[in-house]
């Protein structure tokens, strides 16, 4: 029954670096009217291979179908989806606060230390702090800083590393060698949710 409750999934997509691919990936979600919570694109450990991190709150059933449709795209090499238990993730946040407030109030400095914030820029009129962490952590500091005249706030998309992953170096060799890559799919009947299906 777990497949019908919505939860947060992080999808990792390994792709070629190609113009237009972002659109090809995005429309697979928009076609099903799925809202993307966050999307990040970055290089990977392998030259020329890009990776997308897409965060989405949905049922596992839908996520599995979307994953397969993503992987079907010609320039997509591999797609994984994971729950928050399977991954290490971080988000970066920037906060712009008036410098005079911070300079005058000791309590602010204590707060910033408590939240692990670091000053990026200090000017006479404002100071920009950064924190990294999970959503709740970066959000919590926003709430606190609001009282001290928070001028501007921005948060990055989630970036995530899969705990069980060995990276893409060996995978890419399989693709280069014309050998079909390993593909993990689940099937209720044969394995009761265990990852045994490979192709």
């Amino acid at each position: 029954m777990e497949t019908i409750t919505k939860k947060e999934f992080t999808i990792t997509v390994y792709t070629e670096n190609q113009v237009g691919l972002l659109n090809r990936i995005a429309i697979i979600f928009s076609r099903r009217k799925l809202n993307i919570d966050s999307l990040n694109t970055s290089p990977s450990e392998v030259d020329s291979i890009h990776r997308f991190n897409i965060v989405i709150t949905e049922t596992e059933d839908v996520i599995r179908k979307v994953t397969r449709q993503l992987e079907k795209q010609v320039e997509v090499l591999k797609v994984y989806y994971n729950t928050n238990d399977d991954i290490i993730w971080q988000e970066l946040a920037l906060y712009k606060v008036p410098t005079d407030v911070i300079a005058e109030k000791v309590s602010v400095e204590r707060l910033l230390r408590q939240y692990g914030a670091r000053a990026v820029v200090i000017r006479s009129d404002y100071t920009v702090f950064e924190t990294t962490g999970h959503r709740e952590e970066t959000d919590a500091l926003v709430e606190v800083l609001r009282e001290y005249g928070l001028i501007e706030f921005v948060r990055s998309a989630r970036i995530a590393i899969i705990k069980a992953s060995d990276g893409f170096h060996t995978k890419i060799n399989e693709f280069e060698n014309q050998q079909p890559g390993e593909q993990v799919f689940e099937n209720e009947y044969l394995n009761n949710g265990q990852k045994v299906f490979t192709m």
Partner: peptide, 17 residues
């Protein structure tokens, strides 16, 4: 031949990709 078709509409007992 298309893995995206397996389980898309009808749940499969044995998929033969």
């Amino acid at each position: 031949i298309d893995p995206a078709e397996i389980d898309k509409n009808v749940k499969t007992t044995v998929p033969v990709w």
